[in-house]
Design a protein around this nucleic acid. Structure first.
Length: 884
DNA sequence: GCGAGGGC
DNA sequence: GCCCTCGC
């Protein structure tokens, strides 16, 4: 007889258990996955422990079953399936399919009955069966060959019931279980049983009389109270018996050979698990702990279930092979290119995948031979080239004087667009998530594998972009922008190094003076830069009042110090010290350290795949936060100079772009009108909020109104506004209410955006850039409010990003076509900075103004202010220069 | 990792 | 609301 083991899983029972045992988990896209995660983990563990030869999972189908027809109250007190659970069933079925596990379901029957039928068949075939469920009724199936694995509490505690265990637990044999339930009932399924007869009594009766029928035959032997109860509820007991009896002959084809447990489709499973963000399960399959450095060893028993992705490739050993490569590239629409190397040292190795073949370069023994071929390929306008992080490829090629003319796809940028709030940016992760393959991390095969994977990813990612309606955004904005950003980084900003050093020295002297004074006032030396030491001095030694606390101690931030300023003269000096050390360390010294020795310029990195809203970010150094508000800091801008003595700096910034976008998207007539008439928008808001005529708006009112306008754009909270303009919460609330009362279009817009965001799970910008907002569904109110503010802010901030990106692409195209020497060198969210020969100024002004103001057509004008000067500090409006 | 502070 | 960098 066969010793094979069959596992039959009650899908619904385990899914419900998992749902209630695990708190709501969501993916970064807001998909709820807790039940799917818990179920999959349970299943994995059971399969691991039992190593079965056969596996089946059953599900209920349809709410009406033959039991409901017999007894309308059956399971009537069961609540409807929670909205968070329902959509997890298709996910679970996808997972089971990927695991190659047979699923049974049949309309009108509960999972129990399918289990019963399968068990009957298994018994006939002499299989050992293990039923996995949380439903006690299944215990009636226990036999010498059939056991039940029952969930106890949570999902990790499982009890195994064989005949002995049933006896031990209930004092009955499994074949008495139906009668037992007929007597005790089951409140969760609304099975009545015999009221007043509990488990203890039922077991005693069954021990003595063996069955329900025999109990009724011997009623006269029973004590009066029991007898009466049984007589009175006889019909009910018999009905209960029918209801709890598991059907073992359901009209369904059960072919146990179909249940043979084969190995899963690991690639599909990896795609699913990575998409669902089941990180521990991914680790289980790929046998890695996810650490990039590979320092942490795998546990010995953890055999990776999938091999790393391998692809056959041709190493180019002879120069003649290069001709073959060139020929094939010519005949291929879209090749992928992977480069090893750095921007500083150039390309050290390359791989090219055409779809038919993967080529590995360089030519053995001839380290530079291939560069000419690389040049021919990259600069061929006909060759469409796919990269992962095309901008870094452009940098590396730039080292060899090679251009990348036709970037046809960028898997990193595409993956960012699909989920900018938490994108997978590493090719390894993108491959896992979209192809279900594991990339080799090192070794000779790594490069060709990457090339092949990029080539395979392009259609998959393109399809996903299309599904999210972001194909145009990708091809018309983000992809062409890669080249523009590369050019900006490569050009860099010229810096007056000597000027920077002088500023650093001067700041150093003033910091030293202040340090001496502060130490004297404190009566001891201490590290002013250490919030811990500073806190001790201020709040313990000098006993100043504690205004705010942080997680780790006293808060000493600027708002706290400002409130303490009048209590002790040391405080103002600390504020000054803070300001000066920030300027010296971050700006004077920080910038000086990043001047490129060869070019004398600062080459920031403009990140295209970092922000959740679609903005760019700047790093090493961050040139998007060079001081401007305070005069002292603003002087830093003097060191940013043109790269040639005949050049000037030109800046062009959008005036109030975010508020204009808000006016446009909200369609608020008053707001739109104000911009169309060229009114001062903050003055107008002040007039609305304070209910005074435009000409009666004071400077203070305007400044408060300005804060309100910012607040609206940021997704206002009265708390934030009150803090910013230093008024009470109630006062702030009044301003906001007034604002909404006077600008109903804005109010409606905000409500609409939040509603749509909650409905769809994401928000979009004017060019359909998408951001998922899982925070909107958080059970935590604070997190939820945060999500709501992001829902308001993202369409505005992101649309501004869309617009300036469009302008940048058009400007660069014009500069190129007109062969101008002017260069765009920086973007600061609503501002572009150029380094241009003075002679090209008039033409540049015309191009920049035109491209920026007409980047997109809105219901309000886009207005750009242009300034020029000998450095970034001294830029002045061009009109003024005419008059001067 | 946190607090602080610079920008839009 | 969105970032980056510094010093501890």
């Amino acid at each position: 007889m066969s010793q094979d083991t069959l596992i039959v899983v009650d899908g619904n029972s385990l899914v419900y258990r998992a749902f209630h045992a695990i708190p709501l988990l969501t993916t970064t896209r807001g998909l709820i996955t807790n039940a799917a995660y818990g179920f999959t983990n349970m299943l994995y563990k059971i399969l691991q422990d039992e190593q079965p030869e056969l596996v089946a999972v059953v599900f209920d189908k349809g709410r009406v079953t033959f039991r409901t027809e017999q007894y309308s109250s059956y399971k009537a007190n069961r609540k409807a399936m929670p909205d968070e659970l329902r959509p997890q069933f298709p996910i679970i079925k996808d997972i089971l399919q990927a695991m190659n596990i047979k699923v049974f379901e049949l309309d009108g029957y509960e999972g129990d009955d399918l289990i019963g039928t399968i068990v009957a068949k298994a018994e006939k075939n002499g299989l050992n069966t293990l039923v996995v469920t949380g439903d006690r009724d299944a215990l009636q199936l226990v036999s010498p060959r059939t056991k039940v694995l029952m969930t106890r509490k949570g999902i990790t505690n499982l009890d195994i019931y064989d005949e002995g265990k049933v006896w031990e637990r209930f004092g009955i044999y499994p074949n008495q279980f139906i009668d037992f339930r007929a007597l005790t009932g089951d409140s969760s399924d609304n099975i009545p049983g015999v009221p007043g007869i509990g488990e203890k009594t039922a077991a005693k009766l069954l021990q003595k009389y063996h069955s329900l029928d025999e109990i009724f035959n011997h009623l006269d032997e029973l004590p009066k109270r029991q007898r009466e109860k049984l007589q009175q509820h006889r019909e009910q007991a018999l009905l209960s018996k029918k209801l709890v009896t598991i059907e073992q002959n359901v009209p369904i084809e059960v072919d146990l050979t179909q249940c043979t447990y084969r190995s899963p489709d690991y690639h599909r499973l990896l795609e699913l698990f990575t998409e669902l963000e089941f990180k521990s399960l991914v680790k289980l399959i790929i046998g890695s702990d996810g650490s990039k450095n590979g320092k942490n060893k795998k546990a010995a028993h953890e055999q990776p279930a999938v091999d790393t992705f391998k692809v056959g490739y041709q190493k180019i050993t002879k120069p003649e092979h290069l001709d073959t490569l060139l020929e094939e590239v010519k005949n291929t629409e879209g090749i992928s290119l992977v480069l090893n190397g750095t921007a500083e040292t150039g390309v050290s190795a390359a791989a090219i995948a055409t779809g038919k073949q993967v080529y590995q370069l360089p030519v053995e023994g001839k380290p530079d031979e291939y560069l000419q071929v690389l040049k021919e390929i990259c600069e061929d306008d006909q060759a469409i080239i796919y990269c992962h992080d095309g901008k870094s490829a452009i940098w590396m090629l730039h080292h060899h004087g090679i251009k990348l003319n036709n970037l046809g796809f960028d898997t990193m940028v595409a993956s960012y667009l699909l989920n900018p709030a938490s994108p997978s940016l590493e090719l390894e992760d993108i491959a896992l998530q979209n192809l279900g393959v594991v990339l080799p991390s090192k070794g000779e095969a790594a490069l060709p594998a990457r090339a092949e994977v990029i080539k395979k990813l392009v259609p998959v990612l393109r399809d996903k972009l299309k599904q999210q309606q972001e194909e145009r955004l990708f091809y018309e904005v983000e992809l062409p922008l890669v080249k523009v950003l590369a050019q900006m980084e490569i050009t860099g900003l010229a810096v007056d190094k000597q000027g920077l050093e002088e500023m650093s020295a001067e700041l150093g002297r003033r910091i030293d003076e202040l340090t001496v004074e502060i130490h004297a006032l404190a009566g001891e030396k201490f590290n002013i830069n250490s919030p811990r030491q500073l806190g001790k001095i201020l709040f313990e030694k000098l006993e100043l009042p504690v205004i705010k606390k942080t997680k780790t101690g006293y808060s000493t931030d600027a708002s706290v110090l400002e409130q303490l300023a009048e209590k002790h003269e040391i405080v103002d000096k600390i504020l000054q010290h803070r300001q000066l050390t920030k300027l010296k360390s971050t700006y004077a010294d920080g910038l000086a350290a990043l001047i490129n020795k060869n070019t004398g310029c600062i080459h920031t990195t403009l990140h295209q795949t970092v922000t959740a809203t679609g903005r760019l970010s700047s790093a090493e150094p961050n040139l998007q936060n060079i001081p401007i508000r305070l005069e002292l800091g603003r002087r830093i801008r003097k060191v940013f100079v043109p790269r040639d003595k005949n050049n000037v700096i030109l800046t062009a910034d959008y005036s109030q772009i975010e508020l204009r976008i808000l006016a446009h998207m909200a369609g608020d007539p008053g707001f739109i009108e104000a911009f169309n008439q060229g009114q001062d928008i903050h003055t107008r808001t002040a007039s609305e909020v304070f209910g005074v005529p435009i000409d009666k708006v004071t400077a203070e009112m305007r400044s408060k109104a300005k804060a309100v306008n910012f607040g609206i754009v940021y997704g206002i909270s009265e708390y934030g506004l009150a803090r910013d303009i230093k008024v009470s919460r109630a006062e702030a609330r009044r301003y906001i209410d007034n604002y909404f009362a006077r600008c109903p279009g804005v109010k409606n817009y905000i409500d609409r955006v939040i509603r749509e965001a909650k409905d769809k799970g994401y928000v979009t910008t004017l060019l359909n850039r998408r951001r998922y907002l899982p925070d909107l569904f958080s059970p935590n109110r604070m997190v939820r409010s945060f999500g709501e503010r992001a829902a308001i802010n993202t369409p505005i901030q992101g649309s501004a990003a869309d617009i300036i990106k469009l302008a940048m692409i058009r400007i660069n195209k014009e500069l190129e076509e007109r062969k101008l020497q002017a260069r765009m060198v920086l973007q600061v969210h609503d501002e572009l900075i150029f380094d241009t020969p003075a002679s090209e100024m008039p033409e540049l002004v015309e191009i920049v103004k035109d491209c920026m103001e007409n980047a997109m057509s809105l219901d309000v004008p886009l207005v750009v202010d242009i300034k020029t000067g000998p450095n970034w500090y001294e830029v002045k409006p061009i009109e003024e220069q005419h008059h001067a």
